[in-house]
Structures are given as C-alpha cells and as structure tokens.
C-alpha cells in the first residue's frame, strides 16, 4: 500500500526566486524506510514541511495515508509524527511535562497518555530524568526526547528530519537502532539525512536530492548499479606526465573495466582492487614511476552521488 504519494511537488519561497523543491515525485510504501539523502540546502526539510502540511506547495500535490495535503490537513496531521531537525522542546519543562504537553496537542489524554509517556521515556532511556528540566539534558538526551515526542500516538508514518545531527556516537547509535526497531513493528518512516552511512544502513529505498531536484531513487543495490558494481583503485604519481603511460600499460590486467588518467592521477575501475593492485604496482615500477598515494573505494552512495552530481556529498 502506498502511504505517501508525492506528485510534481514544487516549492518556491519567493515569486521570482529559485525552486527550493523542483518537480519532485516519489512514493513511500507501507512498512518501508524511505530516505532522502542530500547535502544541506538540498530541499529535504522543505519536502517534509510540505508533506506535514506546514508549508503549502507552490505546485503539485501529495497524499499522505490517502489524505490530500492541500485540502485535508488535519487528517494528514493525525496520520503522521514529525521529528524536526531543531530540538523543538520546551527547555523550562521537564521531559515528562514535554511529553504530556505534546501528547495533549495530538489529542491524547487520560490514562492512555500517562501510559504512553512512561513507555516512551523507558524506550528512550529517560525514565530516570523524567522530572528534570530539559535544559539540564545533554544534546543526545534532548535528541532522544525530540524523537519520543514525534512517536506519541503511534502514527503510521514518522517523518524524521536529520535526527542525528550534532549528537554523540552513542546517542546516534541509539536512535538508528530505535528507528530500525520501530520500522520492524510496522511503522513507515521518511528519513532525511546527509549522512550516507545512515541512509545505507537504514533504508529500503533512497532518494538522492540536490538543489531541490530528486536526481535518482531506488534501493541501495539499484543505486550502486548506476556506477557499476566495481571497486575503484586510484593512484597518485609523483610524475604527472606518467599517468597516461601507466593507463596504457595496465590495459591487459584481469578484471579491469575502465582506466583513466588526469595528470598524475590514475583511476581504475576493477572487479577486485586488492587483486589488481600488485600487478599495477609492478607495471608502474617497470615504467620507473613512483607512487605517492593509493586509494581503494568500494561502491557506495558517496560514489553514486559523485557520479551523478560531479561533487562529493559533503561539498
């Protein structure tokens, strides 16, 4: 079942400004983790803002759980939990008070809300600090509470907007594990990040976004195939004029798919970089070339992004 269906979404903040989101279409299916991967400013938060009805699209539309984001905002909001990138908490209130407040804003109350507050505090390992003011919490604890609030009411779709920004590795691990566990219980998740590793680890499908455009979308395997499932062996020579010579010399080695040279930098796409490396070094020695640096890269989303945009994800 398709839980989110975005069709040609466009968002322009000013009439004559650029499109922050430019003709984006995708689906999120029931029970999947769908990640939007892209650098800061790519348009990820704007997409979440439109899908959560905070912003009205300039063009296009979307449905969430079957409800139109333009005309059925309240129904959409009841179907989602949003975990914003900012720590949207009241620092002067305690963790329990925050959960109660946000729970009541979702329309929860009574014993059910009380039970859920206890459950969420326990899940986020915050029970001991339930009565402490949030202003006394560490960054990681605040992030966990921020996440817990988004889960109140157990909505079918959770939108997580860069939930691991600026936290310690332990809290990051905690959140990633919890997202996976949550998904295993059947909750669908829209996850935005600029961390390639998170998208790789969590996602069933990934959309890569840059400058407001969804440049590709698919499973990790599908995306890797875009650059070919080859490893990349990159060598830097001391002799800048030797790159082309070495490229020609290694043309016959086993498993080589592509060889290119740029001044003193030689890039080889091979089946197994470690197997090819001794032979490449031998050829270089025969030609009297000295190696300054060797780099082996396995295909990943970084290489996909590099392949598709010509620049690194964190540029």
């Amino acid at each position: 079942m398709c839980l989110v269906q975005a069709r040609n979404l466009i968002k322009r903040y000013t009439a004559d400004g650029p499109n922050a989101v430019d003709d984006v279409s995708f689906e999120i299916y029931d029970g999947e983790i769908f990640s939007l991967l892209g650098p800061n400013g790519a348009g990820k938060t704007t997409i979440i803002s439109m899908l959560s009805t905070l912003l009205k699209p300039t063009g296009g539309t979307a449905t969430v759980n079957g409800h139109d984001i333009r005309t059925q905002a309240m129904a959409v909001r009841r179907s989602i939990g949003v975990v914003p990138q900012e720590l949207a908490l009241y620092a002067e209130l305690s963790a329990a008070e925050n959960l109660r407040f946000w729970g009541e804003m979702r329309g929860l109350g009574g014993a059910a809300l009380g039970g859920e507050i206890k459950e969420k505090l326990a899940l986020m390992d915050l029970t001991e600090r339930a009565r402490d003011r949030v202003e006394t919490f560490s960054g990681g604890m605040k992030r966990r509470l921020n996440l817990a609030i988004g889960l109140l009411g157990n909505p079918p779709l959770i939108m997580l907007d860069e939930p691991t920004v600026a936290i310690d590795p332990q809290s990051r691990r905690y959140i990633l594990d919890y997202v996976k566990a949550l998904n295993q219980k059947g909750t669908s998740i829209l996850y935005t990040t600029h961390y390639m590793e998170e998208a790789q680890e969590l996602s069933h499908r990934i959309g890569i976004i840059d400058h407001g455009k969804l440049i590709t979308l698919g499973t990790l395997q599908e995306l890797k195939q875009l650059v070919g499932e080859h490893e990349m062996l990159k060598l830097q020579l001391y002799q800048s004029e030797g790159g082309q010579t070495l490229t020609e010399a290694v043309g016959e080695i086993k498993g080589l798919h592509r060889a290119s040279a740029n001044d003193g930098e030689v890039t080889l796409n091979v089946d197994a970089a470690e197997e090819a490396l001794p032979e490449v070094l031998s050829k270089a020695s025969e030609l009297g070339l000295s190696i300054r640096n060797i780099e082996i890269r396995e295909p990943n989303l970084e290489t996909v992004f590099l392949h598709l945009t010509g620049r690194a994800l964190r540029d």
């Binding site: 905070l54 909001r77 804003m105 979702r106 609030i149």
Partner: peptide, 14 residues
C-alpha cells in the same frame, strides 16, 4: 525560531 511553533502547527491542532 526555536521550532516549537512549527511543531505545534503540524500537530492536529488548528
């Protein structure tokens, strides 16, 4: 600016 108002606005509260 702190993000709590946007969060309120995406809750099912007019």
């Amino acid at each position: 600016q702190a993000g709590t108002l946007p969060r309120l606005l995406v809750s099912p509260t007019p």
